[in-house]
Computed example of a mutant assay.
Amino acid sequence: MTYARIHQLVESHDGTRIYAEAVGNPAAQAIVFIHGYACASFHFNRQFTDAGLVNRLYMIRYDVRGHGQSDAPLEEAAYASIKHAQDFKSVVNAFGAVKPILAGWLYYAGVVAADLVAAYGPDYILGVILLGSFPQKMMHPSIATDHAATLRPGLRSSDAREFSQVVPGFVKACFAPGYEVPSEDMAAFMGILFALPSEVRIFSGARTQDPEPLTVAFKGGKLPYVAIHGRQDRLVDCSKVRAWLRENWGEVEFHELEGVGHAPFFEAPERTNALILKFVGKVKGYDNS
């Protein structure tokens, strides 16, 4: 069956307009894809054009505030934890979804689950898929690679020259060494970065979180997780993520994809999409492989 892609500007709680899209069967399980820091929702094109996902899921994606086609407030308070939770809820409500699964990429997105659980409780979402990401913002210093640390000052710099010099390196670091990023995608990835106001780049990564409600939810068996990482990730050390999860949370379903970097959904969409469907089936209680 063919499903038309729907897009709209959704007004969040504080009036910020959030660009969002949806495709698939509205009666199926909803899954909300959230992009990472200095990225945009179009990065998930290889999911939104996958017939297996489109026919079995109701997929939603949106540009996080400050990014892409969404509004970009320039006050630090606009990027607080509660704002991210409210944006997610506003988008979900706009498309009529109930109890969605969150799929988050990179430093910015996987941690939105902590924002949501702190704001609305663990029953608001059905589960979480980490795509090269991690569950709590506080983890980042301990699991980031040395290469990520060298890029961070330039990415947060308000100096245009310093920022522009680090952009190509950051985009390439999102993929495994030797991975050939199509030229049009490379240009689009860099374009999103160059469009970001320096205030957004700085404030986006500065918010604080209360991670305790999320930890309690996971340990209480109320929020299933799956982590999908690339073994050749140059920004996040997946072995450290796995070790942190085991030490602090216990066993979490964890997949390391060989030959893949920080963007498993982009570099290895067939493998990643199959794991997404398998996880949805697992939390829904049916075989979706």
Rank of each mutant, 00 (worst) to 15 (best):
10 V>L: 06
10 V>D: 02
162 E>T: 13
238 C>T: 03
199 E>W: 04
218 F>Y: 12
264 P>V: 08
54 V>C: 06
192 I>V: 15
263 A>I: 02
55 N>R: 13
269 P>N: 13
30 A>N: 03
204 S>F: 10
177 P>Y: 06
215 T>A: 12
244 W>N: 01
93 N>D: 15
9 L>H: 13
247 E>R: 10
214 L>N: 02
115 D>K: 06
51 A>H: 09
160 A>Q: 12
44 F>K: 01
145 T>Q: 06
45 N>E: 12
18 I>N: 02
77 A>E: 15
52 G>F: 05
149 A>R: 14
154 G>L: 11
92 V>Q: 06
229 H>V: 01
170 F>N: 08
175 F>H: 14
25 N>D: 15
238 C>Y: 05
28 A>S: 11
209 Q>F: 10
130 L>H: 14
236 V>L: 10
251 E>G: 00
260 V>C: 15
132 G>C: 09
251 E>V: 01
289 S>L: 02
264 P>E: 09
93 N>W: 03
127 G>I: 00
93 N>Q: 13
256 E>R: 09
43 H>D: 12
215 T>F: 07
165 Q>T: 10
242 R>W: 03
190 M>V: 09
96 G>S: 06
225 Y>I: 09
91 V>E: 00
8 Q>E: 10
64 V>W: 07
279 F>D: 02
65 R>K: 11
255 H>P: 02
175 F>K: 05
237 D>I: 05
171 V>R: 04
287 D>K: 04
117 V>N: 06
248 N>Y: 03
284 K>V: 05
144 A>R: 13
261 G>I: 04
275 L>Q: 00
120 Y>N: 12
98 V>Y: 11
210 D>A: 07
63 D>C: 05
278 K>V: 00
215 T>Y: 07
277 L>D: 01
6 I>H: 13
270 E>H: 10
230 G>L: 05
190 M>L: 11
10 V>C: 08
87 D>M: 04
26 P>Y: 11
36 G>K: 01
5 R>V: 11
145 T>V: 03
131 L>N: 00
90 S>L: 07
18 I>P: 00
52 G>N: 15
152 R>F: 15
204 S>Y: 07
99 K>C: 11
228 I>Y: 09
45 N>C: 02
257 L>K: 03
168 P>V: 10
216 V>A: 14
40 A>K: 01
106 L>G: 14
122 P>C: 06
116 L>W: 08
149 A>Y: 10
27 A>Y: 08
95 F>G: 00
248 N>S: 04
174 C>F: 10
10 V>W: 06
284 K>M: 14
24 G>F: 00
104 G>A: 01
228 I>R: 12
55 N>F: 08
66 G>P: 03
251 E>N: 01
106 L>D: 13
109 A>H: 04
69 Q>Y: 09
219 K>R: 13
193 L>Q: 14
226 V>R: 10
